[in-house]
Amino acid sequence: MMRSLSRHFLPVLTVVLLLVAVWYAAAVAMNAKWTLDQAARADRSVAPAELVRDTLSQDRPKLPAPHQIAGELWDTTVGKKITSKRSLVYHAWITLSATLSGFVIGTVLGIVLAIGIVHSRSMDLSVMPWAIASQTVPILALAPMIIVVLNSVGVTGLLPKATISAYLSFFPVVVGMVAGLRSPDRLQLDLLRTYHADRSQAFRKLRWPASVPYLFTSLKVGIAASLIGAIVGELPTGAVAGLGARLLAGSYYGQTVQIWSALFAAALLAALLVGLLGLIQRITLHRMGAMER
């Protein structure tokens, strides 16, 4: 236990510490100009210790120091009521709900399309190129249009954002599930033919279970894409609510600490979601007899 702990965490911890150190150094270097300019304007000189202290505690630094972001994160999560518009938990929940709705829609759509593609040659030829083409359009260009169009037909709130999430997340599911549903080999398919199994039996007993490992891999990519979709979807709505809105509002007012803390909240959320899926994946595959590793 201790050995595996040190084996896994020691390298990670080392890298994290290194990054933090580099970050502090960069914060001092990038924020120094402002401190020096202020001092020059007041016609006084700055001692090195004072310079370091000041660069790490500015209100609107070019690069906030890690402890400033941590402080802001603490303030806006634990320090505020979660119903407050200044609470990051409130905004994260708005983004999360759009992410999850979009993820579910995208996953279902992706699975349905994959099943169609695997079972119908004409769908294979017609749908796949469109699915690929859909992902070559930059989502930043597409998102405002989706929001505007849906708004004009009276659809507002969660659904437009979920649509963008679904748009991004269905693709990895389609690609992964097509590969997964086609993963049974010739022998396994012949075996079912010798039993005179019909297509739906071949699907339920062979193709679907064979595709489960592929599905989880796709879902992990898909949920991260969903989160990005939801955040991008929050940008053109005029910064009302959500992590995307926090990012946008932060950049309007030069609130770098707020931007960075929203970024970190988004990253944490993504890590949490992917981690959760990873856990479900391990449990499911274990029950399906996967070899212990």
Binding site: L187, L191, L192, Y195, K205, A210, V212, M288, G289
Partner: peptide, 25 residues
């Protein structure tokens, strides 16, 4: 009944469930 060169057991099923496969179908 057909026996192939490889056993071709489904890895996600136990031995008993593998034998049950044709019976289920």
């Amino acid at each position: 009944g057909y026996v192939f060169q490889a056993a071709g057991l489904l890895p996600w099923r136990t031995i008993a469930r593998n034998i049950a496969l044709p019976l289920e179908i």
